[in-house]
Design a binder for these strands. Structure first.
Length: 813
RNA sequence: GCGAGAGUGGCGGAACUGGCAGACGCGCGAGACUUAGGAUCUCGUGGGAAACCGUGGGGGUUCAAGUCCCCCCUCUCGCACCA
C-alpha cells in the first residue's frame, strides 16, 4: 500500500475538525431551501453496527453532503430506538440495568458512526428511552386516549411462558417467539389497543401522495386489505335471528348451497340440533387446540361438521344447511359466509369433500372441474327471484354486483359494506423496558394522568424478572404501583403495561426538529420549515409495520394540528441486503460476517464508504467483496497521487495551465454524470465515471488545477476525509463542506467530432469519424466511401438508408 | 396458489425515450520498474481458428431488440383459506 496516504491520520484529523467546528449543525434559516435527510434510527444492539446498516447511512450521508453543496439547508440527524427486549432479557440474566446496557451500546454505535465520517448533527441526538423524549410519546398517547383511539380490550394474545411476556403477532414466527424461538400459546388478557382501523381509508388513499418503492406501496395496500362487498342477512330457519355474512360476490347469491360459521361464532350453539351437538362440540374443541399455524395450513383437506341447523336464502327462500368449518375465520368479516361452491375455490373444495351441491350461476366455465371465479368474463344465469320481480340474469358479474347490492339494500336484506384485513393495533407489552402508560386505574376504570405529571418515569428497580402472572415487572413494584387519583383523591393503581418498541419510532422524526423543547413536542414554526422528510432510507423489513404505524400517528397529529403535512415521508428508499463474501446471508454461524471496524482499520472509512456504494444499485441485494474494497482503495490512492507527490508535498504536476478541450470536456461530462446520478441515488455509476476521469488525469504530466479542483469537490461527498485533505493541500481554506457544487457547461459537454457506427443490414461493419455538425447527407456520403462499407455494399444501391442523428447509419441492401 | 421485482462475461455490475452489448471495478494473462512484491505503472481479457455466435429458453414485431409483444423456465421478496 502507498505509504504517502495515511488514511488513519487523515480521517482522524478531519473528524476532529468537523467535531470542533460543528460543521454539520443545522440551524433553521427560513429563507433557505431545506432538505430533511433521514435514516431509520437503529436499535443499539450489543453487537454494534454492521456493514448492512452502514450502507443506508452512507447513502444518506452522501446525499446530505451533496445537498449542502447545492445550497440546501440540510437536516441530517441520528438517534436511538433504545427501548426493546434484548436489553431487558440481558437484565433478567445479569441484573445489569437496561439503561446501563443501552448507554454502553450507544457509545459504541456513535463512535462507529463517527469513524465512518457520517455528517450527523449530533446536537440533535435523541434516545426514545430518555424521559424528556418519552414524555412526548406519553403525551401523544393521551391525545389518542382522549379521541377514543386508545381503548382497553380483552384480547387473546400470544403468551410466551419462557419470555414471561406477551408477543405481538409480528414477533411470532411459525408459532415460536421471534426472539429465542420459544413456544407461544393463546391466552386472553387485558390490553391496550389503538384504533388504527379508523384511519384505514386515509392510510390507503394517501399512499398516492408519496414517492415510495412500488413493492412497499403494494405491501401496505395488501396489509390494509380494503375490500368492498355486501353484508347480507340470512334468516335462521325455525327460529328468530339472522346469520349475517360478508361477501364480495353478491352476484352469486343465487348460487349459495350452504352456510358456514366460524367454529367460534356465537350462533353455533343456537343453530346446532341436539343430535349434532356432540360432533359440533368435538370439532370446536379440536379447533381451539390447533395453533394458528396448523389452522392456516393450506395443504390440508378442508374440514367441518354439519350443525343440523338451516338458514334461509333471502333471495329465493331456499333452506341452506349450516356447517361450521375452520376455513372460515372469526376475525374477518362477520365470521360467517354463504358458500357458493361453483364460484369460490375454497367453497368448491369443501363441497367436493362433503358432497354438497354445486350450482352454477355464472356461465362461462366448467364448474364440474373447478370453481369459475372471474368477474370480467361470464354471464349471470339462474338468478331470478321466484316471483320474477328481480333478476340479474344475462349481466356480466361485474355489472350484476352493484345492481343486486342496491336491490338488497332497498329490500332491507343487506347493504354495501367495506371490510379491511387491517386489525386494530395491540399496543401493550408486559415488559419493564418500555414507556409506562400515563394511565391510572381508579374504581376499575382507566383515567388519564394529568399532562403536568408527565413524564411518568420508569421506577428504579433491580428485579427485571417478569411478574409471572402475565403482568410486567412493574407489577412487583408496589410503592410505585399504588397512588391516588389527583382529581378525586381516591386510591389508584398505575397501569403496569408498557408501550411496544414501535411507539418511540412512530414520531422520532418530529423530535429531531426541536429535540430540547420542554414546552411542546415540536415548535410549529420549525415543523413547518423542516417537514416533510425529503428522503428516508431504511430496511425493507419495516415496509409495513413501522411505516404504517408512523403514518397513523402522523395523521392523528395532523388532525390535532401538531403537524402540517398529511404524510411524513415524501421519498422512501430501502437499501438492499449486503450478503457475505460467499453470496450467503451474513450470519455468525456461517462465519461470513464482515466487521466494519476491521474494514475501516485496514482500508479507511473513505474506501469503505466508496466500496459500499460501488457494489451495485443501492436497493439491490449484493455480496461483499474485500477484493472490491482493495479496488476502490487503489482508486483513492490514484486520486491522492494526482495531487500529492511521493514525498508528501504538492505534486509538481499540479499546474495553473489551461486544460485541453478534450480534458475540459471530460471534466464537464463527469460533472454532469455525477450530478445526475446523485439526484437519482445511482452512486455506483457516479463512481465509475469518476474512475474514468481519474484514469485520464493519471496519464498527464501536467494536471491543471481547473480540472483537479472541481473534481475534488465532486468526489467529496463520497470520500470526505481524503477530499478535505486534498482541498487543503491545494491551498484552499477548509472546509469544503459548503463549497458550491460544480456546474457543467452543456456547450463543453458535447464533442466536436463524433464516431458514427455504420451498419449494413443491421450488422456493425465499420465506424467513421465526422464533425459533430455534419449533415445527414455528409455522413451518409462519408459512410458510403468507407472502404469496409463499400466492400459490403459491393457497389449495389442500398434499398434503404437509415440515419439516426448523431447515432448511426444503417444501409439495407 | 396470489402479488411484486429480477435473470447480461469467471465475479459485482454498465447500457438515456429500441440505435456500437459488456462502461467501471474485481479476477486472470503479458510486460515495465524493482533485492523483493500481495506495491506501482502499461497493455490485454465475452465465446470461437474463422465465417460468425452471444443479454434465462422459445416464438414474434422492426432496417435495428438486453430494451417492445406472446408463451415458458428459474430465483428473490411479500401475502398466505381475508369470503
Amino acid at each position: 500500500m502507498n505509504k504517502t496516504y495515511d488514511h488513519q491520520a487523515v480521517e482522524a484529523k478531519w473528524q476532529a475538525y468537523w467535531e470542533t467546528h460543528r460543521t454539520f449543525r443545522a440551524v433553521e434559516v427560513p429563507a433557505r431551501p431545506k432538505f430533511y435527510c433521514l435514516d431509520m434510527f437503529p436499535y443499539p444492539s450489543g453487537s454494534g453496527l454492521h456493514v448492512g446498516h452502514l450502507e443506508g447511512y452512507i447513502a444518506t450521508d452522501i446525499v446530505s453532503r451533496y445537498k449542502r453543496m447545492r445550497g440546501f439547508n440540510v437536516l441530517h440527524p441520528m438517534g436511538w430506538d433504545a427501548f426493546g427486549l434484548p436489553a431487558e432479557q440481558y437484565a433478567v440474566k445479569t441484573g445489569i440495568h437496561p439503561a446501563t446496557t443501552t448507554a454502553d451500546n450507544i457509545v459504541t454505535f456513535k463512535s462507529q458512526m463517527k469513524r465512518a465520517g457520517l455528517s450527523y448533527d449530533w446536537d440533535r441526538e435523541l434516545s426514545t428511552t430518555d424521559p424528556d423524549y418519552y414524555r412526548w410519546t406519553q403525551w401523544i398517547f393521551l391525545r389518542l386516549f382522549e379521541r377514543g383511539l386508545a381503548y382497553v380490550a380483552e384480547v387473546p394474545v400470544n403468551w410466551c411462558p419462557a419470555l414471561g411476556t406477551v408477543l405481538a403477532n409480528e414477533e411470532v414466527i411459525d408459532g415460536k417467539s421471534e426472539v429465542g424461538g420459544f413456544e407461544v400459546l393463546r391466552k386472553p388478557m387485558r390490553q391496550w389497543v389503538l384504533k388504527i382501523t379508523a384511519y384505514a381509508d386515509r392510510l390507503l388513499d394517501d399512499l398516492k401522495l408519496v414517492d415510495w418503492p412500488a413493492s412497499t406501496l403494494e405491501m401496505q395496500k395488501n396489509w390494509i386489505g380494503r375490500s368492498v362487498g355486501a353484508e347480507v342477512d340470512f334468516p335462521l330457519a325455525g327460529m328468530t335471528g339472522n346469520i349475517r355474512v360478508f361477501t364480495t360476490r353478491p352476484d352469486t347469491l343465487f348460487g349459495a348451497t350452504y352456510m358456514v360459521l366460524a367454529p367460534e361464532h356465537p350462533l353455533v350453539e343456537a343453530v346446532t340440533t341436539p343430535d349434532r351437538c356432540a360432533e359440533v362440540q368435538a370439532y370446536r374443541e379440536a379447533t381451539a387446540r390447533k395453533s394458528d399455524l396448523q389452522r392456516q395450513d393450506l395443504e390440508k383437506e378442508k374440514t367441518g361438521v354439519f350443525t343440523g341447523g338451516h338458514a334461509v336464502n333471502p333471495v329465493n327462500g331456499e333452506r341452506l344447511p349450516i356447517w361450521i368449518a375452520d376455513y372460515v375465520l372469526m376475525s374477518y368479516g362477520t365470521g360467517a359466509i354463504m358458500a357458493v361452491p361453483a364460484h369460490d375455490e375454497r367453497d368448491w373444495a369443501f363441497a367436493r369433500t362433503y358432497r354438497l351441491p354445486i350450482r352454477e350461476v355464472i356461465a362461462g366455465g366448467d364448474v364440474g372441474q373447478a370453481a369459475f371465479v372471474e368477474i370480467d368474463r361470464g354471464t349471470v344465469v339462474n338468478s331470478t327471484t321466484p316471483d320474477g320481480s328481480f333478476t340479474i340474469d344475462g349481466l356480466k358479474p361485474a355489472d350484476a354486483i352493484p345492481k343486486i347490492t342496491a336491490w338488497l339494500e332497498s329490500a332491507g336484506k343487506g347493504r354495501k359494506t367495506v371490510n379491511y384485513k387491517l386489525r386494530d393495533w395491540l399496543f401493550a407489552r408486559q415488559r419493564y423496558w418500555g414507556e409506562p402508560f400515563p394511565i391510572l386505574w381508579v374504581d376499575g376504570a382507566p383515567r388519564p394522568l394529568p399532562e403536568e405529571q408527565l413524564p411518568l418515569t420508569l421506577p428504579e428497580t433491580t428485579n427485571f424478572k417478569p411478574s409471572g402472572t402475565g403482568e410486567s415487572p412493574l407489577a412487583n413494584l408496589t410503592d410505585w404501583l399504588a397512588t391516588t387519583d389527583p382529581r378525586t383523591s381516591r386510591p389508584a393503581r398505575r397501569e403496569t403495561n408498557t408501550m411496544p418498541q414501535w411507539a418511540g419510532s412512530c414520531w422520532y422524526y418530529l423530535r429531531f426538529l426541536d429535540p430540547r423543547n420542554d414546552r411542546q413536542l415540536v415548535d410549529p414554526a420549525k415543523e413547518r420549515y423542516w417537514m416533510p422528510v425529503d428522503l428516508y432510507i431504511g430496511g425493507s423489513e419495516h415496509a409495513v409495520l413501522h411505516l404504517l404505524y408512523a403514518r397513523f400517528w402522523h395523521k392523528v397529529l395532523y388532525d390535532i394540528g401538531v403537524v402540517s403535512t398529511p404524510e411524513p415521508f415524501t421519498k422512501l428508499v430501502h437499501q438492499g441486503i449486503v450478503l457475505g463474501e460467499d453470496n450467503q446471508k451474513m450470519s455468525k454461524s456461517r462465519g461470513n460476517v464482515v466487521n466494519p471496524d476491521e474494514m475501516i482499520d485496514r482500508f479507511g472509512a473513505d474506501a469503505v464508504r466508496l466500496y459500499e456504494m460501488f457494489m451495485g444499485p443501492l436497493e439491490a441485494m449484493k455480496p461483499w467483496s474485500t477484493h472490491g474494497v482493495e479496488g476502490v482503495t487503489r482508486f483513492l490512492d490514484r486520486v491522492w497521487r494526482l495531487i500529492v507527490d511521493e514525498a508528501g508535498g504538492l505534486s509538481r504536476a499540479v499546474s495553473a495551465a489551461s486544460p485541453s478541450p478534450d480534458h475540459l470536456r471530460l471534466l464537464h461530462q463527469t460533472i454532469k454524470k455525477v450530478t445526475e446520478d446523485l439526484d437519482e441515488l445511482r452512486f455506483n455509476t457516479a463512481i465509475a465515471q469518476m474512475m474514468v476521469f481519474t484514469n485520464e488525469m493519471t496519464k498527464l504530466n501536467s494536471r491543471p488545477r481547473a480540472l483537479l479542483e472541481p473534481f475534488v469537490l465532486l468526489l467529496s461527498p463520497f470520500a470526505p476525509h481524503l477530499c478535505e485533505e486534498l482541498w487543503e493541500r491545494l491551498g484552499k481554506a477548509p472546509s469544503l463542506a459548503y463549497e458550491p457544487w460544480p456546474a457543467h457547461d452543456p456547450a463543453l459537454v458535447a464533442a466536436e467530432r463524433l464516431t458514427i457506427p455504420i451498419q449494413v443490414n443491421g450488422k456493425l461493419r465499420s465506424r467513421i469519424e465526422v464533425p459533430a455538425d455534419a449533415t445527414e447527407q455528409q455522413v451518409v456520403t462519408l459512410a458510403r466511401q468507407d472502404a469496409k462499407v463499400s466492400e459490403w455494399l459491393q457497389g449495389k444501391q442500398p434499398r434503404k438508408v437509415i440515419y439516426v442523428e448523431k447515432k448511426l447509419v444503417n444501409f439495407v441492401v
